[in-house]
Nucleic acid binder design. Structure first.
Lengths: 150, 150
DNA sequence: GCCCTATAGTTAGCAAAGGTAATGACTCAT
DNA sequence: ATGAGTCATTACCTTTGCTAACTATAGGGC
């Protein structure tokens, strides 16, 4: 009985668009999370490690703001990454309250491999779309990124 | 130091698109979840209740498949909804192993109000986009829905 | 120079929501 | 009529978010 059309959501209104996006995003994220479970880093850890790689010598507070989590949540993620030798915490050069986080060499290697694995599922799904659909998603990606960043 | 450009992700490749989507989706979902915390239903409960409303007399197993969760997770969500008088479980007409779930009247009223509240944040963000950006998201929404459904 | 407030990070404890494994009730084909 | 399969549930664990409270440090006003 799963064949009924599930979305008679009115996409014209902003509220309808919001509904459609919210529901799909939640489901997709759940799906991606599950896909990632087979690999060595959780999605949160992976996203954080990638952020540390992009902004080397970043502080936990800045990372928390970037990833839109509270500082204590970021503390835990960093602790997990440090325990696995993927990031190192060093004192901030001028402010001893702060800490700077950087990726290790091991992390760079792992990131490369993880990226390949972690994206496999979604990439495969993307390949199953038509070229036009992919093109729309390409245009949508930066907008979603912008929305996620507010 | 949050001003650096965070995404030099190559959107041309499927893997790059996959990366960009994955990161943004995770962050947006986190944000939406937090936004929802002020209201009376969790996002998962809300999504499930909405699904029950759309497919009345659906079984837990079908709901689990729809929402891409395992049956035990769905059992818990349904139990929470039943405890609050929002759904009722009745025996399946022909198969006594199964159960059919339907929304109550209270739920229909609540759904309407919740929808209004829960979409407020995202709608506001959508209004801050340009008309063209919204148009792209309108085109992207069904594709994301399709991706989330595979 | 000394306090007082503000800030950065962490710790402690809680809640939401997912998962797997095992169980009980029921169905159905052999 | 029995044994395998199916549906829902229960029990338990994990991840990952949160808030509140604590510690250490910074920095300004007196």
């Amino acid at each position: 009985m799963l064949t009924k059309n599930q979305s008679q959501i009115n996409l014209r209104s902003d509220a309808g668009l919001a509904t459609a996006l919210r529901v799909s995003l939640a489901r997709l994220t759940r799906r991606l999370r599950r896909q990632a479970a087979a690999h060595s880093l959780t999605p949160t850890q992976f996203a954080t490690l990638a952020a540390v790689e992009r902004h080397s010598a970043i502080t936990p507070g800045e990372l928390a703001e970037l990833e839109k989590v509270q500082p204590p949540s970021m503390t835990r993620v960093i602790a997990a990454l440090e325990e696995r030798g993927l990031v190192s915490r060093t004192p901030h050069p001028t402010d001893r309250r702060q800490v700077t986080v950087t990726v290790t060499e091991a992390a760079q290697k792992l990131l490369k491999e993880e990226r390949r694995l972690k994206e496999a599922w979604l990439s495969q799904r993307l390949r199953e779309l038509t070229a036009e659909e992919r093109s729309i998603l390409r245009q949508a990606a930066p907008i979603l990124e912008k929305l996620s960043r507010i």
